[in-house]
Structure formats: C-alpha cells, structure tokens
Design a protein around this nucleic acid. Structure first.
Lengths: 194, 194
DNA sequence: GTCTATACAACGATAGAC
DNA sequence: GTCTATCGTTGTATAGAC
C-alpha cells in the first residue's frame, strides 16, 4: 500500500493529543484538525472514538515498553541497568504517557484500554524484578523493590507536575537510588545538572 | 446561618464526583443531580465551574494534608512516624484524590487549582523531610528520601490502578520501607493481609 | 477512501419568575 | 436564594456525494 497512510497520520496525531491532554479530553474533531484529515476519513478507518483510542494507546504503550526493555537488557551489570532505567532523563513535566492514563476516566472505563495499560506495567515490573534477581537480590525482595522502583518513577512524574519542577523527579529517584545502591553516593552526576 | 447550607452540599457533592471521575470529566449538571440542588442555586453560589472547582479542590487538599500531618506529628519516634505515613491503609484502587489531579487537564490549565495541588505536595514533602531529619538523616539525604517516600506512595496508586491490584501499592511501599529501615524486615505485617 | 454537511445529545452558562 | 427554561457551543457520530 503506497498510500501516504492516512490511518497512520490519524494515529500519530491522536498519540500526541492523548499525551498532551489525555484521552477523555481529546475530541475526534481535534484529531482531525491536527492530522489535516477529513471527518469521513476518520470514521472510515475507526468506526468510533474507542477504536482510534485503542490504536493510539497500544502504539504508545508498545513504544514505551520497548524503550524500557531496551535499557533493562544487555550485557552490562544487572544493577547498573536498573539504575540506568531509574535515572534516564525524562520529560518530567509532561508526565508518563502510560501512567497518566490511570487517572483518565475514559481509559479506565474501557476494558481494552485498561488491559493495555495493565499489560505495560505488569511487564515492566516483572522485567525490573528479573534484572534485580540477576543482580543478586533475593526473589521476594526483588519483586518488592521492582514495584518500588517503577513507583518512584511514576510518583516522580506526579511530584514534578504538581510542583512544576522537573528536579522533584530527580530528587525522588536519587533518594531511592542511594538506598538501593549506596555505592552511587560518591558517583558524579552524569545527567544535565541545571 | 441556620440554613441547611446548600453551598456545602454542592461542595461535598463536587468533592466526591471529582474524586471519582476527575474535575474536567465532571459537569455542573452532575453536581446538581448528586446534590439535589437546582440549576440556578449552583450559579448563585458559584458564578462559574471554576469557582466550584476551587472550593471543592481546596477542601479536598486541606483534608488530605491535615490527615498526613497528623500522622507525621506526635511524640513517637520520628522514623516510625514516617513508616506510619508510608504504610497507612489506603484505597489504592481509587487513587490519590490530590495526586490524580496532576493528570487532569482542567486542573493543570487553571492557575488557582494548580497552585492548590502544588502547595499540598510542597508541604507534604517538606514535612516528611523534617521528620526524617529529626530521625537523624542528614538534611540533603532527608530531602531526597522525602521526595522518594511521597513518590512511592503516588506511584503505588498508579501501579495499583493500572494492574487493578491493591497489593501493588503495598509491594511498592514494602520495597522502599525495607531499604529505608532494614529493621522492619522481621516485623509482623500489622495491616489486613487480604 | 475521502470529502462536506448535518444530526442529536450534553456541555457551561444565563434569564427571569417566584 | 432557589427554581425552571433556555441559549449558544462543542461533543460523538452519521449521511451521502464524489
């Protein structure tokens, strides 16, 4: 299909709008305007808003999960990979594109969308737990710490958005990392330090 | 004023609806229906939805902050007070009434509402940091760990809602607590254990 | 497959009687 | 101070020509 892929333009526009304002707060009309497509085309490709939302949210979750799994895999030391995931530079003020969906009523009321969000976090936490186990943490502790690690990042987004300060997320991560791996205390901060 | 306080009924109904569905997703009409008040009464007390939202969100934030500060103050050992805050039983699937507002576009687009949310978290984090300092943690670490503690709770809400499992929040808190205070490892779990 | 035009409900807000 | 009735706009979705 050599077509300019109207469908892909719609999905991409929906992903951006969903990330910026949430699913429930984004209207099909806005997606049309942002993508430059006509009314009928949208409803040709996606019979209802639900169908567009499923396509866009799935794409966003897939992309986010792939990025995280990328960081968590590899041959470098296991604990270092977890630290890399925790300390990855993030657009803290924008919030997590997947995590934010948990307070979007339009998402939680839709079985398909809720399942997508659930799968993302189930896999993310399970992977972090595996890597921590590989790092020598006992399995039970690894599961709890994996939950804590993912929660610190998600909560860091909340704090950063609430206070309007991206440093709030960095402080939260730092507070957790220095407990998880005390040897990081004397390490130079390798991120932008503004 | 011996009146049945129509205004209070409106604010209370708005608080519940905001907690359940968010601010942007709640219409004045729903507040009317839930409170049993007439159209004109709402707009008599609150000229616009913004005014009702400010009253309801402020009340919710005030109540939530008072509850947290209550737990964090007192004469018991400082570290124990932080643990009490972290481990307090929470309705994890409902989400944080204040934290969830950070992904509500209607809130973030309103200067007054955003300021209310910000003040809540600024004060909460500052108080946790003070108590940690009182517990003997160096000031810099105390600030980072306070951010981490509040973030773990907020992220615990996200995980619990995402997975549909209240235990996800408990796992996240446990993962953080055992790092923050290793002596808690051998402690019996004093909460309801499903 | 894409477009313009339109339908119908719910939104936030106002008017004006009581 | 409270009510019912209504306004103009935007939401989701459909109709039907091209």
């Amino acid at each position: 299909m050599p077509t300019p892929a109207t469908r892909d333009r719609l999905v991409a526009a929906a992903q951006e709008l969903f990330a910026a304002q949430g699913v429930g707060a984004t209207s099909p009309r806005q997606v049309l305007a942002a993508s430059g497509v006509g009314q009928g085309s949208l409803y040709h490709h996606f019979p209802a808003k639900h169908d567009l939302a499923v396509a866009a949210v799935s794409a966003t979750a897939d992309q986010a999960l792939a990025a995280a799994l990328q960081e968590l895999s590899g041959d470098s030391p296991a604990l270092g990979r977890v630290l890399a995931y925790l300390e990855r530079p993030r657009d803290a003020l924008a919030g997590c594109r997947v995590g934010r969906l948990t307070s979007d009523q339009a998402v939680m009321d839709d079985d398909d969308l809720r399942a997508t969000v659930r799968t993302f976090f189930d896999r993310l936490v399970a992977t972090v737990a595996e890597v921590l186990t590989e790092a020598g943490v006992p399995p039970d502790d690894a599961t709890d710490r994996a939950h804590a690690a993912v929660a610190v990042v998600q909560g860091g987004y909340v704090l950063a958005r609430a206070t309007g300060d991206p440093q709030a997320m960095r402080a939260a991560v730092r507070g957790f990392v220095t407990l998880l791996d005390p040897t990081t205390r004397d390490r130079p901060d390798d991120e932008e330090s503004l």
